Amino acid sequence: MTLPVLKSTSLISIILLATTACAQPSSADAKSNKVTQSTTSSQATQTVSAAVDKRLRQILTQAGIKTQITSIVPSKLPNMYKVNLAGQLPLHITEDGRYVIQGELQKNPSKQVVTKTPLRSTSAQVGEPVSTSVKSDMLANMAALKNMSAKTPFFYTAVPGIIWGAMLEGVPFLLSDDAQYITDGEISVIENGQFIGLDENFEKRKNQSVFASLDKSQLITYPATTTERAVIYVADDVNCPYCRRLHQQVPSLNAKGVTVNVIGYPIYEASPKQMRGIWCQADEDSRRQAFDKAMLQGEMTPASASCTVDHVTPNREKAAGLAVMATPAIYREDGVLYQASFESPEFLEFLGVE
Protein backbone atom coordinates (compact mmCIF):
# COMPACT_ATOMS: atom_id res chain seq x y z
CA MET A 1 0.00 0.00 0.00
CA THR A 2 1.16 3.54 -0.74
CA LEU A 3 1.12 5.78 2.30
CA PRO A 4 0.02 9.41 2.01
CA VAL A 5 2.97 11.61 1.07
CA LEU A 6 3.54 15.10 2.44
CA LYS A 7 3.34 17.79 -0.21
CA SER A 8 6.61 19.44 -1.11
CA THR A 9 5.18 22.86 -0.28
CA SER A 10 5.20 23.68 3.44
CA LEU A 11 1.78 23.30 5.01
CA ILE A 12 2.47 26.11 7.46
CA SER A 13 4.27 28.57 5.21
CA ILE A 14 1.76 28.37 2.36
CA ILE A 15 -1.54 27.43 3.97
CA LEU A 16 -1.40 28.36 7.63
CA LEU A 17 1.21 30.94 8.49
CA ALA A 18 0.10 34.56 8.60
CA THR A 19 3.22 36.68 8.87
CA THR A 20 2.56 40.41 9.02
CA ALA A 21 5.82 41.68 10.50
CA CYS A 22 9.18 40.59 11.89
CA ALA A 23 9.45 41.08 15.64
CA GLN A 24 12.60 41.33 17.70
CA PRO A 25 12.41 38.58 20.34
CA SER A 26 12.17 39.78 23.90
CA SER A 27 14.55 38.54 26.57
CA ALA A 28 11.78 36.24 27.79
CA ASP A 29 11.38 34.85 24.28
CA ALA A 30 15.13 34.36 23.99
CA LYS A 31 15.12 32.45 27.25
CA SER A 32 12.20 30.37 26.01
CA ASN A 33 14.07 29.63 22.77
CA LYS A 34 17.06 28.37 24.73
CA VAL A 35 14.82 26.08 26.75
CA THR A 36 13.18 24.82 23.54
CA GLN A 37 16.55 24.17 21.93
CA SER A 38 17.70 22.34 25.03
CA THR A 39 14.54 20.23 25.05
CA THR A 40 14.93 19.42 21.35
CA SER A 41 18.53 18.40 21.90
CA SER A 42 17.45 16.20 24.79
CA GLN A 43 14.78 14.54 22.63
CA ALA A 44 17.34 13.84 19.94
CA THR A 45 19.46 11.87 22.40
CA GLN A 46 16.57 9.75 23.68
CA THR A 47 16.64 6.12 22.67
CA VAL A 48 14.11 3.39 22.03
CA SER A 49 14.41 0.04 23.78
CA ALA A 50 15.87 -2.77 21.71
CA ALA A 51 12.64 -4.76 22.09
CA VAL A 52 10.46 -1.94 20.74
CA ASP A 53 12.92 -1.22 17.93
CA LYS A 54 12.97 -4.87 16.85
CA ARG A 55 9.20 -5.28 17.03
CA LEU A 56 8.43 -2.14 15.00
CA ARG A 57 10.97 -3.12 12.33
CA GLN A 58 9.35 -6.54 12.06
CA ILE A 59 5.83 -5.09 11.84
CA LEU A 60 6.77 -2.60 9.12
CA THR A 61 8.76 -5.14 7.12
CA GLN A 62 5.87 -7.61 7.23
CA ALA A 63 3.48 -4.82 6.18
CA GLY A 64 5.52 -4.24 3.03
CA ILE A 65 7.99 -1.47 3.90
CA LYS A 66 11.04 -2.37 1.80
CA THR A 67 12.93 0.90 2.23
CA GLN A 68 15.85 0.74 4.65
CA ILE A 69 14.91 1.80 8.17
CA THR A 70 17.86 3.90 9.31
CA SER A 71 16.70 4.54 12.88
CA ILE A 72 13.74 4.56 15.24
CA VAL A 73 13.54 7.34 17.81
CA PRO A 74 10.83 8.94 19.96
CA SER A 75 8.53 11.11 17.84
CA LYS A 76 7.58 14.65 18.76
CA LEU A 77 4.00 13.43 18.33
CA PRO A 78 2.61 12.02 21.58
CA ASN A 79 2.52 8.23 21.96
CA MET A 80 4.39 7.62 18.71
CA TYR A 81 7.85 6.68 17.48
CA LYS A 82 9.57 8.23 14.48
CA VAL A 83 10.85 5.76 11.90
CA ASN A 84 13.51 7.30 9.66
CA LEU A 85 13.62 5.83 6.15
CA ALA A 86 16.47 6.10 3.66
CA GLY A 87 15.50 8.61 0.98
CA GLN A 88 11.84 8.84 2.02
CA LEU A 89 9.65 10.80 4.39
CA PRO A 90 9.68 9.37 7.91
CA LEU A 91 6.91 7.37 9.49
CA HIS A 92 5.39 7.93 12.91
CA ILE A 93 4.03 4.76 14.47
CA THR A 94 2.35 3.77 17.72
CA GLU A 95 4.13 1.31 20.00
CA ASP A 96 1.66 -1.46 19.15
CA GLY A 97 2.38 -0.92 15.44
CA ARG A 98 -1.27 -0.34 14.55
CA TYR A 99 -1.39 3.35 13.61
CA VAL A 100 1.03 4.99 11.17
CA ILE A 101 1.47 8.54 9.85
CA GLN A 102 3.87 9.43 7.05
CA GLY A 103 5.23 12.95 6.81
CA GLU A 104 7.61 15.52 8.16
CA LEU A 105 6.43 17.41 11.21
CA GLN A 106 6.35 21.18 10.99
CA LYS A 107 6.92 23.24 14.11
CA ASN A 108 4.18 25.68 14.93
CA PRO A 109 5.91 29.09 15.02
CA SER A 110 3.38 30.51 17.47
CA LYS A 111 4.42 31.26 21.03
CA GLN A 112 3.38 28.42 23.33
CA VAL A 113 1.06 30.11 25.80
CA VAL A 114 -0.43 26.98 27.39
CA THR A 115 2.26 24.54 28.49
CA LYS A 116 0.28 22.03 30.55
CA THR A 117 -0.21 18.55 29.11
CA PRO A 118 -3.84 18.17 27.98
CA LEU A 119 -6.02 15.41 29.37
CA ARG A 120 -5.56 12.67 26.79
CA SER A 121 -8.53 11.14 24.99
CA THR A 122 -9.92 7.63 25.44
CA SER A 123 -11.04 5.09 22.85
CA ALA A 124 -14.64 6.09 23.53
CA GLN A 125 -13.87 9.62 22.30
CA VAL A 126 -12.48 8.66 18.89
CA GLY A 127 -14.17 10.80 16.25
CA GLU A 128 -15.69 13.20 18.76
CA PRO A 129 -14.99 16.94 18.71
CA VAL A 130 -12.30 17.92 21.20
CA SER A 131 -13.50 19.41 24.46
CA THR A 132 -14.02 23.14 24.77
CA SER A 133 -11.05 23.48 27.12
CA VAL A 134 -8.68 21.51 24.88
CA LYS A 135 -9.74 23.55 21.85
CA SER A 136 -9.28 26.81 23.73
CA ASP A 137 -5.77 25.82 24.82
CA MET A 138 -4.82 24.68 21.31
CA LEU A 139 -6.01 27.92 19.72
CA ALA A 140 -4.11 29.92 22.35
CA ASN A 141 -0.97 28.16 21.10
CA MET A 142 -1.76 28.89 17.42
CA ALA A 143 -1.88 32.69 17.41
CA ALA A 144 0.52 33.00 14.44
CA LEU A 145 -1.52 30.68 12.23
CA LYS A 146 -4.21 32.06 9.98
CA ASN A 147 -7.42 30.14 9.28
CA MET A 148 -7.34 28.85 12.85
CA SER A 149 -10.33 30.04 14.85
CA ALA A 150 -13.15 28.87 17.09
CA LYS A 151 -14.84 27.64 13.89
CA THR A 152 -11.96 25.30 13.03
CA PRO A 153 -13.06 21.68 13.60
CA PHE A 154 -10.83 19.48 15.76
CA PHE A 155 -11.51 15.81 16.55
CA TYR A 156 -9.91 13.16 18.74
CA THR A 157 -8.19 10.37 16.81
CA ALA A 158 -7.46 6.79 17.87
CA VAL A 159 -4.00 7.91 19.01
CA PRO A 160 -4.20 9.74 22.36
CA GLY A 161 -2.56 13.14 21.95
CA ILE A 162 -3.02 13.30 18.16
CA ILE A 163 -5.76 15.62 16.92
CA TRP A 164 -7.35 15.72 13.47
CA GLY A 165 -8.27 19.15 12.18
CA ALA A 166 -9.49 20.77 8.98
CA MET A 167 -9.43 24.27 7.63
CA LEU A 168 -12.80 25.68 6.64
CA GLU A 169 -11.83 25.02 3.01
CA GLY A 170 -11.84 21.32 3.92
CA VAL A 171 -8.06 20.72 3.92
CA PRO A 172 -7.27 18.21 6.70
CA PHE A 173 -4.19 18.07 8.91
CA LEU A 174 -2.94 16.34 12.06
CA LEU A 175 -1.34 17.97 15.07
CA SER A 176 -0.18 17.24 18.58
CA ASP A 177 -2.72 18.20 21.23
CA ASP A 178 -0.44 20.95 22.50
CA ALA A 179 -0.51 22.34 18.92
CA GLN A 180 3.28 22.36 18.70
CA TYR A 181 3.70 20.05 15.70
CA ILE A 182 1.59 19.81 12.54
CA THR A 183 1.58 17.55 9.49
CA ASP A 184 -0.74 16.99 6.55
CA GLY A 185 -0.24 13.24 6.77
CA GLU A 186 -3.16 10.92 7.50
CA ILE A 187 -3.44 8.06 9.98
CA SER A 188 -3.17 4.67 8.28
CA VAL A 189 -3.87 1.34 9.93
CA ILE A 190 -1.87 -1.90 10.00
CA GLU A 191 -4.08 -4.90 10.68
CA ASN A 192 -3.17 -8.58 10.46
CA GLY A 193 0.27 -7.60 9.27
CA GLN A 194 -0.88 -5.46 6.34
CA PHE A 195 -1.70 -1.84 5.63
CA ILE A 196 -5.48 -1.67 5.21
CA GLY A 197 -5.81 2.03 4.42
CA LEU A 198 -6.89 5.03 6.43
CA ASP A 199 -8.53 4.67 9.82
CA GLU A 200 -12.10 4.04 8.64
CA ASN A 201 -13.48 3.77 12.17
CA PHE A 202 -12.25 7.28 12.93
CA GLU A 203 -13.58 8.64 9.64
CA LYS A 204 -17.03 7.14 10.23
CA ARG A 205 -17.30 8.39 13.80
CA LYS A 206 -15.98 11.84 12.90
CA ASN A 207 -18.48 12.18 10.07
CA GLN A 208 -21.30 11.05 12.33
CA SER A 209 -20.26 13.78 14.77
CA VAL A 210 -20.42 16.32 11.94
CA PHE A 211 -23.91 15.17 10.90
CA ALA A 212 -25.08 15.47 14.51
CA SER A 213 -23.81 19.06 14.66
CA LEU A 214 -25.66 20.24 11.55
CA ASP A 215 -28.71 22.46 11.82
CA LYS A 216 -31.32 20.04 10.47
CA SER A 217 -33.68 22.90 9.64
CA GLN A 218 -31.11 24.18 7.14
CA LEU A 219 -30.77 20.92 5.24
CA ILE A 220 -32.86 20.49 2.09
CA THR A 221 -34.39 17.07 2.59
CA TYR A 222 -35.94 14.79 -0.02
CA PRO A 223 -37.69 12.08 2.03
CA ALA A 224 -38.02 8.49 0.87
CA THR A 225 -41.38 7.99 -0.85
CA THR A 226 -41.50 4.31 0.14
CA THR A 227 -40.39 2.60 3.34
CA GLU A 228 -37.11 4.25 4.29
CA ARG A 229 -34.16 1.92 3.77
CA ALA A 230 -31.24 4.34 3.70
CA VAL A 231 -30.32 7.94 4.51
CA ILE A 232 -27.57 9.86 2.76
CA TYR A 233 -26.00 13.28 3.20
CA VAL A 234 -24.83 15.06 0.05
CA ALA A 235 -22.56 18.12 0.00
CA ASP A 236 -23.90 19.98 -3.03
CA ASP A 237 -23.12 23.06 -5.11
CA VAL A 238 -25.71 24.43 -7.54
CA ASN A 239 -23.08 25.07 -10.23
CA CYS A 240 -21.41 21.67 -10.00
CA PRO A 241 -22.34 19.67 -13.13
CA TYR A 242 -21.96 16.32 -11.37
CA CYS A 243 -24.16 17.55 -8.52
CA ARG A 244 -26.83 18.33 -11.10
CA ARG A 245 -26.51 14.87 -12.62
CA LEU A 246 -26.89 13.28 -9.20
CA HIS A 247 -29.93 15.46 -8.50
CA GLN A 248 -31.67 13.97 -11.53
CA GLN A 249 -31.56 10.64 -9.70
CA VAL A 250 -33.14 11.90 -6.47
CA PRO A 251 -36.75 10.91 -7.35
CA SER A 252 -35.55 7.41 -8.25
CA LEU A 253 -33.58 7.16 -5.02
CA ASN A 254 -36.58 8.36 -3.01
CA ALA A 255 -38.71 5.68 -4.69
CA LYS A 256 -36.18 3.05 -3.61
CA GLY A 257 -36.48 4.16 0.00
CA VAL A 258 -33.52 6.55 0.17
CA THR A 259 -33.85 9.84 2.04
CA VAL A 260 -31.49 12.51 0.67
CA ASN A 261 -30.27 15.31 2.94
CA VAL A 262 -28.59 18.13 1.01
CA ILE A 263 -25.88 20.18 2.71
CA GLY A 264 -25.36 23.51 1.00
CA TYR A 265 -21.65 23.40 0.15
CA PRO A 266 -20.80 26.21 -2.29
CA ILE A 267 -17.40 25.91 -3.94
CA TYR A 268 -17.90 27.87 -7.17
CA GLU A 269 -17.39 31.63 -7.01
CA ALA A 270 -20.98 32.53 -7.89
CA SER A 271 -22.54 29.87 -5.69
CA PRO A 272 -22.63 31.45 -2.19
CA LYS A 273 -24.93 34.29 -3.26
CA GLN A 274 -27.07 32.04 -5.46
CA MET A 275 -27.46 29.39 -2.78
CA ARG A 276 -28.28 32.00 -0.15
CA GLY A 277 -31.22 32.98 -2.36
CA ILE A 278 -32.46 29.38 -2.38
CA TRP A 279 -32.02 28.94 1.36
CA CYS A 280 -33.84 32.25 1.92
CA GLN A 281 -37.12 30.79 0.70
CA ALA A 282 -39.88 30.99 3.27
CA ASP A 283 -40.54 27.30 3.92
CA GLU A 284 -39.17 23.83 3.27
CA ASP A 285 -41.29 23.17 0.18
CA SER A 286 -40.37 26.52 -1.40
CA ARG A 287 -36.71 25.85 -0.71
CA ARG A 288 -36.91 22.41 -2.33
CA GLN A 289 -38.65 23.87 -5.38
CA ALA A 290 -36.02 26.60 -5.74
CA PHE A 291 -33.24 24.03 -5.38
CA ASP A 292 -34.88 21.81 -8.01
CA LYS A 293 -35.07 24.75 -10.44
CA ALA A 294 -31.39 25.46 -9.93
CA MET A 295 -30.27 21.85 -10.28
CA LEU A 296 -32.59 20.73 -13.08
CA GLN A 297 -33.10 23.92 -15.10
CA GLY A 298 -30.18 26.13 -14.11
CA GLU A 299 -32.58 28.84 -12.89
CA MET A 300 -31.51 30.62 -9.72
CA THR A 301 -34.04 32.12 -7.31
CA PRO A 302 -32.78 35.40 -5.85
CA ALA A 303 -33.13 36.22 -2.18
CA SER A 304 -35.91 38.61 -1.28
CA ALA A 305 -34.96 42.03 0.04
CA SER A 306 -36.33 41.05 3.44
CA CYS A 307 -33.96 38.07 3.78
CA THR A 308 -30.75 39.36 5.32
CA VAL A 309 -29.68 36.14 7.05
CA ASP A 310 -27.12 33.74 5.59
CA HIS A 311 -28.62 30.28 6.17
CA VAL A 312 -25.96 28.43 4.14
CA THR A 313 -22.65 29.32 5.78
CA PRO A 314 -23.25 27.93 9.31
CA ASN A 315 -23.77 24.36 8.07
CA ARG A 316 -21.08 24.83 5.43
CA GLU A 317 -18.59 25.67 8.18
CA LYS A 318 -19.67 22.73 10.33
CA ALA A 319 -19.33 20.46 7.29
CA ALA A 320 -15.65 21.44 7.02
CA GLY A 321 -15.11 18.46 9.32
CA LEU A 322 -16.09 16.20 6.42
CA ALA A 323 -12.98 17.41 4.54
CA VAL A 324 -14.88 17.59 1.25
CA MET A 325 -12.43 17.77 -1.64
CA ALA A 326 -15.01 17.68 -4.46
CA THR A 327 -18.76 17.80 -4.87
CA PRO A 328 -21.04 15.98 -4.80
CA ALA A 329 -19.66 14.29 -1.69
CA ILE A 330 -22.02 11.48 -0.73
CA TYR A 331 -22.09 9.92 2.73
CA ARG A 332 -24.19 7.20 4.23
CA GLU A 333 -25.84 7.99 7.54
CA ASP A 334 -23.19 5.85 9.28
CA GLY A 335 -20.50 8.25 8.07
CA VAL A 336 -19.02 6.22 5.21
CA LEU A 337 -18.02 8.27 2.16
CA TYR A 338 -18.94 6.87 -1.26
CA GLN A 339 -15.86 6.95 -3.50
CA ALA A 340 -17.03 5.70 -6.88
CA SER A 341 -19.41 6.80 -9.63
CA PHE A 342 -22.97 7.35 -8.43
CA GLU A 343 -24.07 6.26 -11.91
CA SER A 344 -22.71 2.74 -11.43
CA PRO A 345 -24.60 -0.23 -9.91
CA GLU A 346 -22.15 -0.09 -7.01
CA PHE A 347 -23.93 2.99 -5.70
CA LEU A 348 -27.15 1.14 -4.92
CA GLU A 349 -25.11 -1.69 -3.40
CA PHE A 350 -23.37 0.89 -1.21
CA LEU A 351 -26.79 2.10 -0.05
CA GLY A 352 -28.10 -1.42 0.46
CA VAL A 353 -31.08 -0.86 -1.84
CA GLU A 354 -30.25 -3.00 -4.86
Results as ranks from 00 to 15, higher is better:
L6N: 14
K7W: 05
K7G: 05
S8C: 03
L11C: 14
L11Q: 09
T19I: 09
Q24E: 12
P25R: 04
K31A: 08
N33A: 14
T36W: 09
S38G: 14
T40K: 11
S41P: 00
S49A: 00
V52Q: 11
D53S: 09
R57Y: 07
I65R: 06
Q68G: 11
Q68M: 13
S71C: 02
I72P: 01
P74T: 00
N79T: 02
N79I: 01
K82H: 04
K82C: 03
N84V: 06
L85N: 03
G87D: 09
I93C: 02
T94A: 11
D96Q: 10
R98T: 14
R98N: 13
E104A: 06
E104N: 13
Q106I: 00
K111W: 02
Q112M: 01
V114S: 09
T117E: 09
T117Q: 07
P118L: 06
L119F: 14
R120Y: 00
S123I: 02
G127H: 12
G127V: 02
V130L: 11
S133V: 05
K135L: 01
L139A: 15
A140R: 12
M142W: 08
M148Q: 15
K151W: 05
F154I: 07
T157V: 05
V159G: 05
P160I: 13
P160Q: 04
G161H: 07
I163M: 15
L174V: 00
L174K: 08
S176E: 10
D178N: 03
D178C: 14
I182R: 10
E186D: 04
I190R: 03
I190H: 06
E191Y: 02
E191V: 12
F195M: 12
I196Q: 11
G197P: 05
N201S: 10
F202N: 14
E203H: 01
V210W: 01
F211N: 10
S213G: 08
L214A: 03
Q218V: 01
L219M: 11
T221R: 06
Y222I: 04
V231R: 15
P241S: 10
R245Y: 02
H247Q: 12
V250R: 05
V250K: 01
L253P: 02
A255W: 04
K256E: 00
K256M: 11
V258G: 03
V258Q: 01
N261P: 11
V262F: 12
I263Y: 05
P266W: 13
E269D: 09
K273L: 03
K273M: 13
R276I: 12
I278L: 03
D283N: 09
D283T: 08
S286D: 15
D292A: 08
K293F: 06
M300T: 11
M300V: 10
P302K: 05
P302V: 05
P302R: 01
S304E: 15
C307T: 03
V312M: 02
P314V: 01
N315P: 00
E317K: 08
K318V: 13
G321K: 07
A323Q: 12
V324R: 00
T327S: 00
I330P: 15
Y331S: 01
R332T: 07
R332H: 04
R332G: 08
E333N: 02
V336L: 06
S341C: 01
E346W: 08
F347H: 08
F347K: 05
L348V: 04
